[in-house]
């Protein structure tokens, strides 16, 4: 196995442990925003899409990459905005006059 692959696996496993630790502590009240927020983070494939779409010459890869850019951007922008929209509704007791 190539060295890069092994490093990748190490990074993946450690990141999974961090994810489990952090997310286990999130209360059920916030599970929907957590899901839409983490959903936005999974749009990180945008980074990969940019690398594939970024080539100067037109070819099939670039076209696929551009479609991926659009889809991933929808995922990222839609995910973060809708999470924000939800979270701004979570209020403590409103102070009434």
């Amino acid at each position: 196995m190539a060295e890069g692959l092994i490093t990748g696996i190490v990074v993946f496993v450690l990141a999974t442990f961090i994810g489990v630790e952090v997310i286990n502590k999130i209360p059920p009240t916030l599970h929907t925003p957590l899901m839409s927020g983490s959903n936005a983070i999974s749009g990180i494939s945008l980074v990969g899409a940019l690398l594939v779409a970024g080539e100067r010459n037109w070819n099939l890869s670039v076209i696929l990459g551009l479609i991926a850019v659009i889809l991933a951007t929808i995922n990222v922008v839609g995910g973060f905005l809708v999470t924000d929209r939800m979270l701004q509704m979570f209020k403590k007791k409103e102070v009434k006059a």
Binding site: G4, L5, G8, V11, F12, V13, A15, T16, F17, I18, G19, V20, V22, I23, L34, M35, S38, N39, I41, S42, I44, S45, V47, G48, L51
Partner: peptide, 15 residues
Amino acid sequence: MNNMLIIAGALVGAS
């Protein structure tokens, strides 16, 4: 072979 994708993906996968 991009660590950024691996890490972010793993976090979401765990969640």
